[in-house]
Amino acid sequence: MHPAYSVIFFTTASGLGYGLLALLGLYAAAGLIPADRWFGITGMAVALGLITFGLLSSTFHLGHPERAWRAVTQWRSSWLSREGLVALATYVPAVLFAAGWVLFGRTTGWWGILGVLAAIGAALTVYCTGMIYASLRAIPRWHNRWVVPNYLALALATGGVSFDALTRVFGLERPESALVVSIVLAASWLLKVIYWRDIDAAAPVSTSGSATGLGNFGDVRLLDPPHTQDNYLQREMGYRIARKHAAKLRRIAVILTFALPLALSLLLLTLPSIPALVAASLSALSCMAGVVVERWLFFAEAKHVVTLYYGACEV
């Protein structure tokens, strides 16, 4: 699949935003962090800002952004619709929760319930995002049971490193948060590796033989595409990445998204606060950069079965 930057940006930014929102909601609701106004303003602004920016950016690539409202009407069948609805719905508790925090300095009790609701909304939204991809049978590497857990884990991981860094900026860090982040990072690393292993080992779902129905006559090879220049389908779905290139990018993604942040997070447990702040910030930046690479690969490595009509032999 063609890795479109708007989509990569949208999913990574909103993933981070929702991860952060969820952690802010839960931590604050549980009273584990104080209802500091400046921290509240900053944290909620970053979370909601990224979410909003991500959502907006996802409309940039629409042919008719002015009709975007229509996208929430088909919640009964469409994961994209559901994602839109849940995303919108999440704003309600999230904004109220933010108001409580920022305006009234309250994050617990009834206000805390809003925080929990926002966290649930965040999780559901990311779940829906994952399901948009996971529901597409035509793209076997997405139609995979590890896709949704990966989306959730990565949202939490990117949200987590940011949460950790932010709390340190305000000197509000919790002693165990680096540990929690480390566990999340390790878990999402594991999930990513499982996903990669799974797609690498998966038997092809479709072949040029099944795509044409001519498989029983022998090996099916494309001689001529319908038009000599690439068409929309080839540009959109025909993206191919060399195996060597992909392997390299996977290593980069692993280092930036997981290995380095994990190492830094573990280090945090022992560092004094100023170096810890630097390490946490580095960890967050690295993780965010890594997840962009990860998301790019998620697209670039996904093969659409339509390519079977344009020269691919199996997908």
């Binding site: 699949m1 629409l62 042919g63 597409l136 068409n231 959109e236 339509v306």
Partner: peptide, 20 residues
């Protein structure tokens, strides 16, 4: 009604959708 999100073209296994 179409917003041009292209998702249907991703969902169609046969390449039968053409984005204008």
């Amino acid at each position: 009604m179409c917003i041009g999100c292209k998702l249907c073209s991703w969902a169609c296994p046969y390449g039968a959708r053409e984005y204008d």
